[in-house]
Design a protein around this nucleic acid. Structure first.
Lengths: 373, 373
DNA sequence: TTGAAAGCGCTAACAC
DNA sequence: GTGTTAGCGCTTTCAA
């Protein structure tokens, strides 16, 4: 049996399920116009006479017509869906980013499909394939490592338009010179991190330790560490071995304790994200240390929660919602002159690399940073 | 021109865009089988001979065939997409819930479409309509007020399968007796809140104040307040006027200060969510009060972050990821015996209301609760 | 076990 | 301005 014998199956429920099974053809029939005209009323209203359009609208309302986007998308060979892949929503950074993404996409009439990768390259591949099968028009994503990413290589090869969020592409691992640049929206991780560390130095700190998630799981973490190195070296201060924590959820009191127990314990911590910073602060408190009186802590991300706690978390602030919104905006622009034009645009960009959009960051040297004890 | 004259437009790029434009028909051709057989290889492998299937698979791999889900969905009149509407991801409760949702849905082969309502009923309607146009097979949602919701009325009327997450339906506002029950997955808000407050009382507190978001924006907030009332009245203690804060982000120091300034200041706060609790703790600290030594604070939600801060946030713990996963599981079950069978199942449920699944909660009476000063 | 053919709901040539 | 018609990529009868 063909899938939809709706009228035969549920005759009594016709009124109980408005919009269900009512097609544009039904509307056209009721409005006494052709299917084409009915379609035009919704997609190209300017092509149809006012009075006719009104009749169609009336019929549509009367029948509770709800357009089936599937048909439109299939025919148009364009889904107007944007695939979004973020590492996790458990980190508020990405949750805030989603706000910007959703707002920007929805107000442009685009739909979204969200998947999370959990920083796992294998899962990245799987989820991206999944988005591709849905024929998303493009993607906004944050990958573990934008410089060395199978997923991005694949996307490039298939010419799928995408814009990276948070990832800041410095140089391709394989250094292929003919590769097209990877579009991205982020802050300048290295510079901003260096700036944050300089603020720590300006406050009088000399022994500053970095706490970070796994470097392999995040290019941002590495770039921020590089910023720390820059600032330390420029000031003739010792670059300490980074403390790499596998997760922000577990208590890492042990590693912190070990570090604080040494004679040359750091007087300040730079954590490569706010969640980590909050965890470190708690660990320090459990060791009987006060923040910032005994130890200073600087975070990175500027999640809303940081401003909420007491003392407020000192941090390098990224415009998270804006990163999301701008990523969508850039993707939309690429999607705009899609097709034949796109390749031309790539070619005529005469060397100037405008592919990486750097958004301004800010420093919030608040409560958790003070002078060394 | 019809939308896809792919071969003509980009002949050179054929190999640069594998999977793009390669249809099942191409695969069938290459494997020298009919389109029908090729289709069966993927959807009903048991109907096709092993050797044939192998040929098709080979051809598919050779051509980098990627199925276009749009065509399948349109034809099948079933999208295998679940619409998800959450208030916001900025509250970690819902971000954690998403984890459970994504895991459960993906592993069952379902896709997701996420929208957020920001607790706004108007936006709820708009976003749901949007999901409906995408022909989602069903929805998992958290609405502002499950007892009085236009959106849910509409969904019921259109017989769209959905399962509520977090919302706990007590009684319909309009009390229609013939309305089908609203399926939901949550903890027992009232009971668990009462339990939390009883723990406060057991710790010696007598003057306990409630801090909550707007009651109009959240049925959970009202139910939890009711639980507070239960516990207080059962112990002959005074029910204090709730402090309703419009948002968790702003500092609400003023209202807290006013309250703490009175001669009969509360010795403990019960906050109807963890985010609020964290804000209140900060406000108290800014007033020079120590938690829990001077004032105790109990939250509600059990977000991961609560366990991370020092002192750890005392709270009523909900299994957030599980709520999401179970909501999907229940929806999937409803979707399973969809069509003719569904209505029968509704009818034969002989009075027993199994529509509201209550998951176990837990109490974590940790750091931020102590005896009154 | 396989193939031929119809059609899901919609849009866009092309004709009038 | 409006109608006719041909599909988008896929699944599924029905017949062989």
């Amino acid at each position: 049996m063909p899938p939809s014998r709706r009228a035969a199956l549920t005759p009594r429920l016709a009124s109980a399920e408005p919009g269900h099974g009512v097609t544009l053809a039904d509307v056209a029939l009721a409005a006494k116009v052709s299917l084409a005209t009915a379609s035009r009323v919704f997609s190209h209203p300017q092509l149809v006479r006012e009075a006719t359009a009104q009749r169609v609208h009336d019929a549509a309302r009367r029948l509770s017509f709800r357009p089936n986007l599937l048909g439109a998308k299939l025919r148009a060979q364009q889904t107007r869906i944007i695939g979004v892949m973020l590492p996790t929503l458990d980190n508020a950074v990405f949750a805030e980013c989603w706000r910007g993404i959703e707002e920007a996409a929805m107000s442009a009439g685009y739909s979204l499909m969200l998947v999370t990768s959990n920083y796992d390259p294998a899962r990245e591949r799987e989820r991206v394939e999944y988005l591709l099968r849905h024929r998303v028009d493009g993607m906004v994503l944050t990958v573990a490592d934008a410089c060395d990413s199978n997923v991005l290589d694949q996307l490039d090869q298939e010419a799928v338009p995408y814009v990276l969020a948070y990832n800041q592409v410095t140089m391709r691992a394989n250094g292929q010179p003919n590769g097209q640049p990877r579009h991205s929206v982020s802050v300048d991780n290295r510079t901003s991190a260096a700036e944050g560390v300089r603020a720590l130095i300006a406050a009088g700190h000399q022994r500053i330790a970095v706490v970070s998630g796994a470097f392999t799981a995040s290019d941002r973490a590495r770039q921020r560490f590089a910023g720390y190195e820059d600032a330390m070296q420029a000031n003739g201060l010792p670059v300490l071995e980074p403390v790499n924590l596998p997760s922000h959820t577990a208590s890492n009191a042990d590693q912190i304790r070990a570090l604080m127990g040494t004679t040359s314990a750091p007087t300040a911590f730079f954590c490569t994200n706010d969640l980590l910073a909050i965890g470190v602060i708690s660990d320090l408190k459990r060791l009987g240390l006060r923040v910032p009186r005994d130890v200073s802590v600087l975070g990175y991300d500027g999640i809303a929660l940081g401003a909420l706690v007491e003392p407020p978390l000192a941090t390098v602030v990224q415009p998270n919602a804006d990163i999301g919104a701008q990523a969508i905006a850039r993707l939309l622009r690429r999607l705009g002159h899609q097709g034949a034009g796109a390749r031309i645009e790539e070619m005529t960009q005469n060397g100037a690399d405008d592919s990486a959009l750097l958004l301004p960051h800010a420093l919030r040297i608040d409560g958790t940073v003070g002078p060394p004890a």
